[in-house]
Amino acid sequence: MMLKITINGLDIEVEKGITVFEAAEQAGIYIPPLCHHPDLPTFGGCRICMVDADGKIVTACRAPVKDGMIVKTDTEEVRKVRLTNVELILASHNKDCQGCSRNNSCRLQEVSAFVGINQDRMRKIRRSVEAVKPDDSNPFFHRDFTRCILCGICIRTCEEINGVAAIDFAFRGFHTRVSVLGDKPLKDSKCESCGECLVRCPTGALYLAKPALVEREVESVCTYCGVGCGVKIGVRGDRVIKVDGNRDNPVNRGDLCVKGRFGFDFINHPERLKKPKIKKDGIFVEATWDEALDFIADKMHDIKAKHGADALGAISSARCSNEENYLFQKIFRALGTNNVDHCARL
């Protein structure tokens, strides 16, 4: 069923059941969001997306559209409420934006700019940041409480996306913060380190233990289990420094697990093999590709000649590509043996 509503004087037809926020989004009208995330159920705690709907100030992210509704997103009253709210958040927020991993990609910065934060007004505020030590127990991502805006996105992510529910709000009022059962370090909780919360954090509260701003991204498929999650490999220089879930991939729609997201150290690991090696008198000696491949080809011909092709065994890999598996079996079948297998059974 379609409803007719007006947003800022524009007549819009929208589906019944959607929220004012979604309706505005469809009409291309920006309403500043902080605690809202399209993947998650609404929360309604930040009070930034407030709009005037039929004369009442409501949170756009929760208010359902009604037929004939008149929405105004930029009245004097709306501007004031939003501005005060953002000022209040900034009052206890870390001031150091340059030193923040999310500088330039921060939702709070975006919203602050939109509502028109200015220093004259900010001088009236008593700014103080509660000194709480960051939780750096997890090896992949840490939590800086001074940059947390308590939007609850990480909590809802853990509950709704991953289904682990390792974190929740703890304490009360101004002392509220995100924590785990018993207020222990994250590492000692049931957190599975998937990093889905990190990805959705609108500020720099959750940040990578090793900063990773990439130069370019390459779409690929995760190399671990058989789910085949789409990934975006983040490259800086000649190194892989980050892996993100590919939200456009139909398999995982952006979700990843701890291995897929963070387990890429092996790619640039110093122990990677860099040269072919041939064992001579029990000791491995570096060789050129031609030497190594000639050695193998000769030996294989030799075995085939002496013992027949079935004296060769070929163990392919469930980690290699289709093309590589194809070529591998092709080599051995062309040599005349079906002794081709791989680790499917392990």
């Binding site: 309604g44 705690g45 930040c46 009070r47 930034i48 409420v81 005060t84 709210n85 209040l88 958040i89 009052a91 206890s92 505020i125 008593r126 103080s128 805006i149 308590l150 709000f169 304490f171 009360r172 009022g173 101004f174 002392h175 509220t176």
Partner: peptide, 24 residues
């Protein structure tokens, strides 16, 4: 301020801010 549940910004941060100003 002590009894604010902490869910929404205006109450959580606002009571604290007003209290700070009154203290001042």
């Amino acid at each position: 301020f002590e009894e604010s549940c902490g869910q929404c910004v205006p109450c959580r941060q606002g009571t604290q801010q007003m209290l700070e100003i009154l203290n001042d």
